[in-house]
Amino acid sequence: MDYLDALSMHASRLWEGLLITLQLTLISGILAFIVAVILGLMAGSTRKLVRFPARIIIEFFRGTSLLVQLMWLFYVLPLFGPSLDAMLVGIFALTLNYGAYGAEAVRASMTSVPQSQWEATIALSMSWQHKIRRVIFPQAWALMLPSLTNLWVHLLKGSSIVYIIGMSEFTFELLQLRRTTDWFFALAMVGLIVYFLIALALTQLMRLLEVRAKHRLGRGPSLKEILSPMPPKTPAADNASDTHVTGGAR
């Protein structure tokens, strides 16, 4: 069968598989972010009773492999509780696994916010929620974005294994090509390129968020300046770089 014929014949199935992969990546990505923030905040707490359970959950889901979690939810969980359909199992496993990794990124970036900023919030008598929401998290956000971007790409890549529990996502549909065509290798390369393009799109999207986050902290150009075709002006932040404060100084 001709290469392009094979591609066009399978195009609609591949497209449906692609949509499922995109759904998995987006839904699990967002849920994993929520899990990461909650667990990350808990793990950064000074209270043992809050920190300890979070640490156990994080280490558990980071330490056991994604496929183990997927299989456990698929084969073992129904023994005790609900028998979830494959899509839900996929979303849960991806959410918990990458949420745990994300929690570590959230925690680490919060501790990287200079000690002096934490001290300033004490001097202004801010409550815990207040300082986290208004002062610490906005600064940690810029620091954690690169890690979150990497994790999101990891999640996209990890989603390719859920065909094993019977989900007809993109990798599954790619595999089906093997049955009807001798062009599998070439078609699979197209598949790899599609994954690559999605990953690139995710990375660029997150980079825009990062630019915005940094600009809000007074570092680097604004999104407008970056997206406009005009040559950028010298950033205003430069004249203050000599007074830029490094944290922890006493």
Binding site: E119, L124, M126, R134, V135, V245
Partner: peptide
Amino acid sequence: RTRIGMVFQHFNLFPNMTVIENMIEAPVHV
């Protein structure tokens, strides 16, 4: 603690807020 204020060697302004936001944040919310 609300009766005590402190000015630091390295200023410790919040970089994610404008000058006025830095100044009204605690008076409004604390």
